[in-house]
Design a protein around this nucleic acid. Structure first.
Length: 274
DNA sequence: AAAAGGCCCTGGTCGC
DNA sequence: TGCGACCAGGGCCTTT
């Protein structure tokens, strides 16, 4: 569910309702996610004011600093995590693992598969081990065809799994990797280092516009998203190739093909992509 | 260094 | 209606 657009839309949806507000209580129901939730997290956060929510890749960073008393909560939604706002006193449902309780609302984390992560740091979060290793933000000004061409020129692996390497660039998950390659007309099987500069321009543009379009699509229903009781998890734009094996390409009619790459499903049009 | 595979965990779907 | 096999958006760790 959560790729970069979903995380960004969650951030924008939460912001107006909890930024600037004081945490009254912190509830940990399930301490075991991908990493264990620190036992002292409630004590660390209780009483602090959430000053700002930022995003790095697919991580959300909650700034709880007050003067010299710095502190950040780092959160990742994994494969099945979601955040929603519920009224205080709302009974938790299955897989509701964690709450930040404010005076008038509760931010609640649900994550059935528990691949999500919560961590606390008092130091600059960009130096935290989870974030320090992350690659470039595809929506940042520095990300373009020139950067991409340079970054992948010594990579012999197929471009699709390379696009999903978070140490290179962040936020491009399995769905957007296939979709971006289709938009750019680049085959997912092509060796990353054998893509021309011009086609890297197209690919970088495709990644950026695909992510932005999805954020815009989610952003139009952002309030519903974080206030939803569920089901609204995925607002991915209708996909051109993802999960469409055998269906006709929307451009040329050729049946969409799928293949397994580095353990993940890839979808592409063999006629439109080279 | 880079690439591939296993693994963490639960739930949904499909075939029998 | 039940059951097992298989699949699923991520990312870390190990092996080669």
């Amino acid at each position: 569910m959560p790729e970069l657009p979903e995380v960004e839309v969650s951030r924008r949806g939460l912001q107006p309702f909890i930024e600037g507000k004081q945490v009254r209580e912190v509830v940990v129901r399930t301490p075991r996610l991908r990493h264990d939730i620190p036992a002292n997290l409630p004590r660390l956060i209780r009483g602090r004011t959430l000053t700002r929510i930022t995003r790095r890749g697919k991580y959300l960073v909650f700034d709880f600093g007050q003067g010299n008393d710095t502190g950040w909560l780092i959160l990742h939604l994994g494969m099945s995590g979601s955040l929603r706002l519920v009224a205080p006193g709302t009974p938790p449902q299955k897989h509701d693992h964690f709450d930040l309780v404010f005076a008038d609302t509760v931010m609640r984390l649900r994550d059935p598969r528990r691949f999500g992560t919560l961590a606390w740091t008092a130091e600059d979060p960009s130096k935290h081990p989870l974030l320090a290793v992350l690659g470039i933000e595809p929506l940042s000004p520095g990300f373009d065809g020139k950067w991409l061409h340079e970054a992948v020129k010594r990579r012999n692996a197929p471009i699709k799994p390379v696009l999903m390497d978070g140490h290179l660039l962040v936020g491009v998950g399995n769905i957007y990797a296939s979709e971006s390659l289709f938009q750019a007309g680049v085959s997912p099987l092509r060796a990353a280092g054998r893509i021309s500069r011009g086609r890297c321009d197209r690919l970088a543009n495709a990644i950026r516009t695909t992510l932005e379009a999805s954020i815009a699509a989610g952003g139009s229903s952002v309030r519903d998203y974080v206030h939803s009781d569920g089901g609204a998890g995925c607002f991915q734009l209708s996909c051109a190739v993802y999960d469409r094996t055998g269906a006709p390409c929307q451009v040329c009619g050729t049946p969409i093909r799928s293949v397994r790459q580095a353990g993940r499903s890839t979808y592409w049009c063999p006629h439109c992509q080279h």
